[in-house]
Amino acid sequence: MALLDIKNLTIYYETEDGVVKAVNGIDLQLEKGESLGLVGETGAGKTTTALGILGLIPNPPGKVKGGEIWFDGQDLLKTPEKEMRAIRGGKISMVFQDPMTALNPVHKVVDQIAEMVLLHNEGISKADAQVRALQMLEMVGIPADRANEYPHQFSGGMKQRVIIAIALACNPEMIIADEPTTALDVTIQAQVLDMIRGLRERLGTSLLMITHDLGVVAEICDKVAVIYGGEIMEYGTLEHIYNETAHPYTKGLFGSLPRLDLDVDRLTPIQGLTPDPTNLPAGCPFGPRCPQHTEACDVKPPYNEISPGHFVRCMLFNDQAINTAGKESEE
């Protein structure tokens, strides 16, 4: 059984200007010890999915409209808030995008890590929590003599290390990282990615990595889910997504990227703009921008498994489904 199994998750934001359909029936699995990249552009629903898993959708205006989020055999959507508070940070941790604002500026970094340890381990003494915090700092490569400094004394890369130390402090089973290296310079990003990879190898923590960067995904993930208009368009292993790219949107993403490793004279951008989530197309959300759009795309395309473990939501592949029952029969 998968560690995380999201079924048909639907999340809307009900605003005065209309209903923002942020997440529309997402299915996702994350196995124990695996790392999954959730890739998409601004407004695709990446962060909403993550907040949904943690039960952090601001309500109002946000509302989970349906679906199930199974984590460790428990449906998080039916879990009472009190238990959720133990799960957040205990079993599932989150690393936010912006290391500049995620830390409390008036507390020493060591105390911010110890706070996490104290909250999730009943009866632990303050001294023990401090010891654990210092161990965590060392693990993320921050020398102990900087433990008593404040966040403003740290650079962006160091702050992100502290945040990762906080996230790992209670040995969570899964980490959700929302664009953890986007705000960092490339040489610092390389250091942080290297550290994340090393820690995952050592601790076996599962990772849900939210990013827009297909390069970062190739470095750190085992599987990839490409999200667009609140739906998973393509899902598979790195091999499936990078070498057997099926969905026209995924192909469009690759065509848009200036490449270091290839010589491209002219980029082939995706025409048009990302859809307005208050007014999504009736059929395939990518339909209006798709170069291979046909009339068939005006109805919702099914989510088909076109080779073992490679799922595509696109009419072009409708007759290539290896089993018509789709995902259900996989289990």
């Binding site: 040489t187 990003q189 390069g215 995904v217 091999e239 990078y242 490793d261």
Partner: peptide, 8 residues
Amino acid sequence: SAIPIPAI
């Protein structure tokens, strides 16, 4: 060398 390449 630090730039992640979108290929495997």
